[in-house]
Each structure stands twice: as structure tokens, then as C-alpha cells.
């Protein structure tokens, strides 16, 4: 209870700070604000995918349905955050470069992640038996695990880049004003905590659903 309240205050507080306290990046102007939401959302997308894949593999090894609950929940939440990242990215692109969608590497990558999530969830919805669903979804996770690096690295070679690389480099140093950096990392942490909280809720629902199925049958 307290933890939830603190999380709410944390995120709310830092959102306010994002608008009132942190300065703008000169090149980006007012659109600077997007990076506090867009990038953490993209980060959570990737985190959720990793979480889901790890639990899928664990399911194959241990056959404990709990791992499947975790994998499925993470996939649903990941999809949600992926949509947020995609839409916020598109809005940002429109404001910055005049077009919603350009198939530049980052946009393309996030779109592919969207496809993978959608495919995984579509597959799950086509299987009724819990164990078979868990197993086949986990196998698909394994295949997707192979595809993801290729999707992320094939793309930059084939399409040109519109992303402001020198400024925001998720791989390397973050070259920003200290205040921006603080708010950014704070919200990054906030989003991550948000993910884990919603994830735990979703897993609890999954457990209840699973038990309820048993008594109905």
C-alpha cells in the first residue's frame, strides 16, 4: 500500500519536475519532454521482452506454470509499453521532422518488437490447454530470441538514420544537462518499478484464473 503510494508520488513528482525544473535541450526545444516518457517506455518494452523470454526458457526447463504466468504477463505489459513507445516516438518524429513514420532504425526496431509481442499473444490465444499453450509459447519465445538481434542489427544497415544519435545514445554516454539527466534516470527507475508492480498484479490475476479454471472444469 505504502509502496504504491510512494511510487505514485515518485513518478508524479518527477513528471512535474520534467516540465517545470529540467531545462530544454536546445536542438529539441519543447519536444525534449518526450524523452522522459518515450525512452523509459522503450526500455521497459525491452525489459519486459527479456523477462518474458527468460521465464519461457525456465518453463521449458522446469515445467512450472508459474513461469508461464510470468512470461505471458510480461508480454502483455510489454506490448502496452511498446505501443506507448511507438506512439510517443511517432509524435516526436512528427514534431521534429514533420513525418509520423520514417522507418528509421529506431522506429523500425520498435515496430518489430510490436510485431513480436503481437505474434506471441496471438499464438497464445489460439491454444486452449494451459500446458500446451505454455510450452508452444515458450518455444516461440525461443525462436523470437534468435530473431530479435537480427531485427535490431539488420535494420540499421538497410535504412538511413533519422534519430538524433549524437545527443541521446542509449548504448553509451548520456550527453545531457545534469538536471535533464536526473529527471531522466528518475523516470527510468519509476517506469521500471511501474512495470514490476503491474507485472505482479497481472501474475496474481493469472494464478487466480488458473485456479478458477480448475474448479469450473
Amino acid at each position: 500500500m505504502i509502496a504504491r503510494g510512494l511510487l505514485l508520488l515518485w513518478i508524479a513528482g518527477w513528471i512535474v519536475a520534467a516540465f517545470l525544473w529540467a531545462p530544454l535541450v536546445p536542438v529539441l526545444g519543447e519536444t525534449t519532454r518526450v524523452l522522459y516518457f518515450h525512452i523509459p517506455a522503450a526500455w521497459v518494452t525491452v525489459l519486459a521482452l527479456g523477462w518474458s523470454m527468460v521465464h519461457s526458457l525456465l518453463y521449458l526447463k522446469r515445467r512450472n506454470l508459474e513461469h508461464d504466468h510470468q512470461a505471458a504477463a510480461a508480454a502483455e505489459i510489454g506490448l502496452l509499453f511498446c505501443v506507448v513507445a511507438t506512439v510517443s516516438g511517432a509524435l516526436w518524429a512528427k514534431a521534429m521532422w514533420g513525418a509520423y513514420w520514417n522507418w528509421d532504425p529506431r522506429e523500425t526496431s520498435i515496430f518489430f518488437l510490436l510485431l513480436i509481442y503481437a505474434a506471441y499473444l496471438a499464438l497464445r490465444s489460439a491454444i486452449d490447454q494451459p500446458e500446451r499453450r505454455a510450452r508452444l509459447a515458450a518455444v516461440y519465445s525461443g525462436i523470437a530470441f534468435v530473431s530479435v538481434p537480427f531485427l535490431i542489427f539488420v535494420v540499421p544497415r538497410i535504412y538511413f538514420s533519422l534519430h538524433p544519435d549524437p545527443l541521446i545514445n542509449p548504448r553509451g554516454k548520456v550527453d545531457m544537462d545534469p538536471r535533464i539527466r536526473v529527471v531522466f534516470f528518475a523516470l527510468l527507475v519509476g517506469f521500471t518499478m511501474l512495470f514490476f508492480w503491474v507485472q505482479s498484479l497481472r501474475v496474481r490475476v493469472a494464478r487466480v484464473e488458473h485456479r478458477r479454471q480448475g474448479s469450473v472444469a
Binding site: F112, L115, A119
Partner: peptide, 13 residues
């Protein structure tokens, strides 16, 4: 739908 993400790198390359 399910195979598309897996086959996409092939398509691109």
C-alpha cells in the same frame, strides 16, 4: 502473422 517477425530479417537481407 506468427512467422512474419521471424522471417522479416530474411526478407530485408
Amino acid at each position: 502473422g506468427v512467422s512474419f517477425p521471424v522471417l522479416l530479417p530474411i526478407l530485408a537481407a
